[in-house]
Design a protein around this nucleic acid. Structure first.
Lengths: 200, 200
DNA sequence: AGCTCATCAGGTCAATCGTCCCGGACTCTT
DNA sequence: AAGAGTCCGGGACGATTGACCTGATGAGCT
């Protein structure tokens, strides 16, 4: 094995853990499986991380950042507001369809964190970051385009987070289906209606 | 220990398993913990169930039926349609707030089923039943009240299932907050708009 | 009462888990 | 070149898991 500083090893092990978890599930992600995936002996694992919990913590924060980056890149200003919302949803949905394992993993990790004593704050942080990201995106759009909000930003942001969460989870369970495009259209229209001027 | 037929023992063990899973999580629900919760010895467990998987299967189907019953009872026809929708959401939300563990468990079991080879069909069935229940409720309301649907029943049913799913999950993670009532109002208004006559 | 069989208790087993230890090997400083 | 600090490999330990096995127990029928 090539020698490398602990920091890089930690990153390598974290990514290996994410691969194993996404492929086989969190329960199957044992220290041995992760070390094997990283191509490293078991002792290296405990050399870089004080415990498995420390690695899981690293995994959760990394995954959360991944998700946020993905959502932020999905939403770019377009010509009209409805088009922006539609394109954002489509980009996000496309990512869900092409990387279902990754999204599944975020749900698994959320529940793992909720059950693990002392990890609840990671789950909360994950969802608070989601909400904050949506709020930030709305603010950003609010500056570049002119529209009024029929509901407070915080309410809209959380609603967006909840709807995308629910749709994603349902898709992951039920699989591909043409119904989803219709549902996304309905949601898009609703969101567009919520952010348009209430006086017509 | 009192003697009782296998069928009743199975029911007893299933309920004990649900209690353990809701309290400590699916991962902590070992055969020993479940047997102890039911107040029987470990051998009784394997006398009534061929394997732990058989019990989990029993747990999943039982929990799914519980959830469906709960949703069905939450929705009763009221004076106006919007009032019906609002009351239904409130009843459901009240159940979520008073029984968070039970709802958390359904999410855990869904993912457990998705990961366990040969159990995927149980997860799919669970979510198909949810969608079918909503569709059935919409049909039922459609007969007792007069309104037009702006979207197909299947789309509306799945949208309802996804939204409630997402909102519930977000609540379970983030905990109590006044924002939820505002979000529920927004969703209620949206749903009411979707089922009202499009010609005004 | 005697018999039969569903029911239960305790112990045991192999497998797997997270964790740890010890010794060797590498790298950098001096 | 010598030593100290850093990295890595293999092996081992105790705990826990699902599963199983052998006898005892007692209810219900004849």
């Amino acid at each position: 094995m090539a020698r490398m500083p602990s920091a890089e090893r930690r990153r390598q092990l974290t990514e290996a853990a994410i691969r194993v978890m996404a492929r086989d599930g969190v329960a199957k992600a044992t220290t041995r499986a992760i070390a094997a995936e990283a191509g490293v002996s078991l002792s290296v694992f405990h050399y870089c991380f004080d415990s498995k919990q420390a690695l899981v913590e690293s995994v959760i924060t990394t995954i959360t950042d991944h998700s946020v980056t993905m959502v932020k890149e999905a939403i770019r200003p377009r010509a009209t507001l409805e088009e922006t919302v539609r394109a954002g949803f489509q980009a996000y949905w496309n990512h869900v369809r092409t990387h279902p394992d990754e999204h599944m993993l975020t749900y698994e990790l959320t529940q793992y964190a909720l059950r693990q004593p002392g990890f609840e704050h990671l789950a909360r942080r994950q969802y608070e970051v989601y909400g904050a990201t949506y709020a930030e995106l709305i603010d950003q759009l609010h500056r570049s385009m002119d529209f009024r909000l029929r509901v407070p930003v915080s309410v809209l942001a959380r609603y967006l987070a909840a709807v995308t969460d629910g749709l994603t989870l349902n898709y992951l369970v039920l699989g591909d289906d043409e119904t989803w495009t219709d549902i996304l259209d309905t949601v898009t229209a609703h969101i567009a209606g919520l952010v348009q001027a209430d006086a017509h």
